[in-house]
Simulated assay, not measured.
Amino acid sequence: MNSATELVIFDCDGVLVDSERLAVRVDSALITELGWPLTPRDIAQRFVGHSRQYMREQIEHHLGRPLPDNWQGPFEQAYWDLIDKELTAVDGVREVIEHLAVPYCVASNGSHYKMTRSLGRAGLLALFTGRMFSADDVARPKPAPDLHLHAAARMGVPPQHCVVIEDSPFGLEGARTAGMRTFGYTGGVNTAEQLEGPGTRLFQDMRELPGLLGDAILPGITRR
């Protein structure tokens, strides 16, 4: 690595919690019912990593009409039922977090409520108390760099000393624009081809991450 790592910034959905596989199923049913037939794969390619507002704007553009204020209402309960029933932490990520030798945080386009509930369901919430940052906190969500820069500023670390772990092209774009080093996790719903980009290192298994982070990891964890 070219410079010392002083902060690791994790995305939430798809990186800390394995929620994207569940969300694309629900969103596929929702958007198809609204009149735009999209498969879970289509959803992953178009919307994973973006905010719900971005999704709404794209649906309205495609349909040529505004959506009602409660457009997600009929599916909101279905989503949370699925989260409460099936959500787990991404395999291997807890061990990585517990062995970090530097500060870490989470920066997500999701709301604080969504992060809190999802991390709580996956048993990770206690690890991120006081270090959760949402797109609700900034003017522009990912792929703008605002959220990553906000998280770094709040944690007191210059961007060039931050490492960002993302699973979407939009999150990686935001981190690169912020001047941070990027690692793309390909073990979720997005392919390696979607996550490729200048200076971004791809990996498929969280157990590979300690070997990539180097001195940011404490002794005692297996490094591939």
Rank of each mutant, 00 (worst) to 15 (best):
A101I: 05
S168Q: 05
T186Q: 04
A153I: 03
A89K: 11
S3V: 14
Q204Y: 08
I83F: 13
L34G: 03
N2R: 15
P143M: 03
G123R: 10
S134F: 04
T32F: 01
T39C: 05
F203T: 11
D11S: 08
L209R: 02
Q194A: 14
D11V: 00
G49W: 01
S111G: 03
H161P: 00
F10K: 09
Y54W: 15
D84P: 00
M55T: 15
A4R: 14
S118W: 02
P143H: 01
T222C: 07
Q58R: 15
E86F: 07
V8A: 01
F75L: 12
D136P: 00
T177Y: 05
A44D: 05
A126K: 14
G49L: 10
F75R: 13
V163Y: 05
A135E: 09
V48E: 11
Q204V: 01
A29R: 14
H99N: 10
M180C: 09
P66D: 12
A44T: 03
E196N: 11
D42R: 14
E193L: 13
E76V: 10
M206Q: 10
P40T: 11
D69A: 14
G120P: 12
C162A: 07
P145A: 05
M115E: 08
G199E: 00
T5L: 02
D69G: 06
P68V: 10
N70H: 14
S134D: 03
I217A: 02
L213A: 11
L212K: 07
T177D: 13
I221A: 00
T32A: 09
F133S: 04
A78V: 15
A101S: 14
G35R: 09
I217C: 06
R41G: 10
G199W: 03
W71V: 03
A139T: 12
G110K: 09
V24C: 12
Q194V: 04
R207Y: 07
E60M: 07
D69E: 15
A152N: 08
S28N: 09
E57L: 08
V102E: 00
G64D: 04
A135Y: 01
L218V: 10
A23P: 03
H61C: 08
R65Q: 15
V163R: 04
G110E: 05
F170G: 00
